[in-house]
Amino acid sequence: MDTFFITTGVILGLLTLVCLYRVVAGPTVLDRIIAVGAIGNKTTAILLLMGMIFGRVEMFVDISISYALLNFIATLGAAKYFRVRKSIVPGSKYLKEKGIS
């Protein structure tokens, strides 16, 4: 069973690396925020898997909860920060002026 957990953890770690591509290359800031949030979700799962592997779930679950909470607050804060700056993409028009859709 440990082998299964380790394999899952390694797969999730590789997926984290793939997400890191979007963090580096994302055209806008919001792409980077999304990718960081996705990495945070995977890390929450990886921490729990590490707890299973070490046999100390009751310890790792606290770290995992804290990580998920801080990740959520960070995402909200980043989204709010970039919302009050009106234009992220250079040259784009403000959508509300011409009406959505």
Partner: peptide, 14 residues
């Protein structure tokens, strides 16, 4: 303390 401060920051964001 970090979590306590973060809860307050969440309120300010919301």
């Amino acid at each position: 303390g970090v979590l306590m401060g973060a809860s307050f920051i969440l309120l300010v964001i919301a």
